[in-house]
Design a protein around this nucleic acid. Structure first.
Lengths: 365, 365
DNA sequence: CTGTTAGCGCATTCAA
DNA sequence: TTGAATGCGCTAACAG
């Protein structure tokens, strides 16, 4: 049987309440008593029962972090920074610090809801949802309802890298990424190099991240008169004429997507990928087709994941400060930093021009 | 205030015990009663309180997964597969399924112990420790003691990718990686290509993974008569004469390590890196020094992380089936699969020869 | 400053 | 098949 508070109390010759006070340090206790209790704790190798504590105090030291895929560096970087932030730091008590529960949804809406239930059941202190949202009215409503309830019961909610949930009340803080702006600058870069037939190997259309990146892309094209403007409020849709294919955010989606794109439009001189991982797949497909990057086709990624700089050629991409965002989400979910005005902050993105993009081959006239 | 069992019971016109029975389904309840309870649960949006349940039942649905760094794909792949395995699957009840708590130790022994305390406090159902261990007698003893206590209190312990803990009793199952064999085959590959001056940009010497890989490396050299055999039981140590430098498992360690290595021994024709990530850094350093890979220097990695195939040139490396290992660890920690004989299994590694290794330039005679 | 007393919400006896 | 009663280990009033 495990050692309990009562055992420690007996050993130290005090009441269990006193032991509790010493442990939590939130109440005055005489120095000598404290010493005696400390010794008893050490001698018995006592470890608090978190469940009992949580039950009695109606609080918990669990923070849930929902990610699409831990194995994806995009989420890994966010989660890692977040966890570093909420774990016990140097100045804080040992054993203080929250436990981050990293939950892999695999991008599945059902898994997302399941994990939210599990976290609600654990009375989590906070929940952070990372990455793009699935844009399905019904699912959004379900998530919103769940989050609203969690927030109402005192759980802090932070959205990191996903659009705000307007109907969920002001309880929910959002850290959004400027995917639209980044994508726009990226496409402008390609246009300024002289590219006119730019293909997209995009992510799944139902994800907000995909949509925002495509909107940015379209805005750049529109500025060059190559596509109609998208009116505000209008639902986004792929233009029938344009070379766009959809897939996942993984390498093989990039590979397959590039092949499909070349089939649809063999004349593309540049390809914008869903993210860096997919861009690697695009490059591999082009290589296998005997096309050189950027000689025959320029390729651009997104996110600026660590390996992008080591790809061949190094990937032109859009940098998102994932670690900073994760750390900030960590501070917010602990209530250690004040929410931004409007409960919403947008993280800027930065165009990183590298070797995978160049003027189209015909442009050396 | 949150809805409790009692609320549901009142609504359904039964006792709370009955509701509990319906929820857990481990006791006969009349069909009509069950239906009534189910409806009350749904109407009230009731969610079990995990803490209270755990306290009363003396069990929990948390599984701790200790990793050095979530942002590192090595750990990401293990954690992702593990979590997929322990989460509620299709055939299982919704709300069943354990929560994986991924804990980032950052490679720090103190953090490792802190997290073990936190998990013990949560009365975790299981704990998986992944990746190489820090080989410090005192720390090993402390971890062993902690794990033995956890095991004694019913927590299942699995070691994944780290050597077995002999003194901890048979309660602990180990899934070890054959780092030694893989490293040996890798070095043999280089030797068979004709390399004789092979440098190592290794990981931290105090980590078991580093040591095992260096031992395999040395064994290959010894087989070619290029280094003395290491006697069994002898403590491993770097040979004074050999070009070996130590660093971390990250890219910049690889970069810095390669520069240092070139300073120590400009004549190396091949470099074995701590892992693939470090290998990318090594390649970058060589490139910056005007050396070509594999023209001037061959480079090899370890782990076969996803990006290795897209590096320029593609990395020769040693594949570890991380996902399979993670999934297996998941099954073991749930007790869903029987432990291997001797409570220990070794996962085979496989040499992957790609473009980053070639015969030394002088060998074309 | 310290001890006593009630629960926190649930699972699980023991009766009925 | 169901209900009443008890306790899991701890925190938080409330006294002293």
């Amino acid at each position: 049987m495990a050692v309990t508070l009562a055992d420690v109390a007996a050993r130290a010759g005090v009441s269990s309440a006193t032991v509790s006070r010493v442990l939590n340090g939130n109440y005055p206790v005489a120095g000598s008593t404290r010493e005696r209790v400390r010794r008893a704790v050490a001698e018995l190798d006592y470890v608090v029962n978190g469940q009992a504590r949580a039950l009695a105090a109606a609080s918990s030291d669990l923070v849930g972090v929902l990610v699409n895929d831990v194995a994806d560096p995009f989420f890994g970087l966010i989660a890692s920074a977040l966890q570093r932030e909420i774990a016990a730091g140097p100045g804080r008590l040992p054993g203080d610090g929250k436990l981050a529960v990293v939950c892999n949804t695999g991008g599945s809406p059902e898994a997302e809801l399941t994990y939210l239930t599990l976290l609600e059941r654990q009375r989590a202190a906070g929940v952070v949802l990372t990455g793009g949202a699935v844009e399905d009215r019904q699912h959004t409503a379900a998530v919103t309802a769940r989050l609203a309830r969690l927030a109402a019961s005192g759980t802090r909610i932070v959205l990191c890298g996903r659009p705000p949930l307007p109907d969920a009340g002001a309880e929910i803080t959002t850290i959004a990424f400027d995917n639209r702006g980044g994508a726009r600058r990226l496409t402008e870069h390609l246009l300024s190099l002289g590219h006119r037939r730019i293909g997209c190997v995009a992510g799944p259309l139902e994800r907000s991240t995909t949509r925002h990146r495509l909107e940015g892309h379209r805005a750049a094209l529109a500025a060059y008169g190559l596509a109609p403007e998208v009116a505000a409020g209008e639902e986004f849709r792929d233009l029938p004429g344009r070379p766009v294919v959809h897939g996942g955010y993984d390498r093989s989606s990039g590979y397959d997507g590039a092949l499909e794109l070349l089939r649809k439009d063999p004349a593309v001189t540049a390809i914008v990928a869903a993210n860096d991982t997919a861009a690697l797949g695009v490059c591999a497909a082009l290589r296998d087709r005997g096309l050189s990057v950027p000689g025959d086709v320029s390729v651009a990624g997104f996110d600026d994941l660590p390996f992008s700089v080591d790809a061949a050629p190094a990937l032109t991409t859009v940098r998102i400060p994932l670690q900073e965002a994760g750390a900030r989400a960590g501070r917010l979910v602990l209530g250690r930093s004040a929410p931004p005005p409007g409960a919403m902050a947008t993280v800027a993105t930065e165009l990183m021009v590298r070797g995978s993009t160049a003027p189209p081959s015909g442009s050396a006239r």
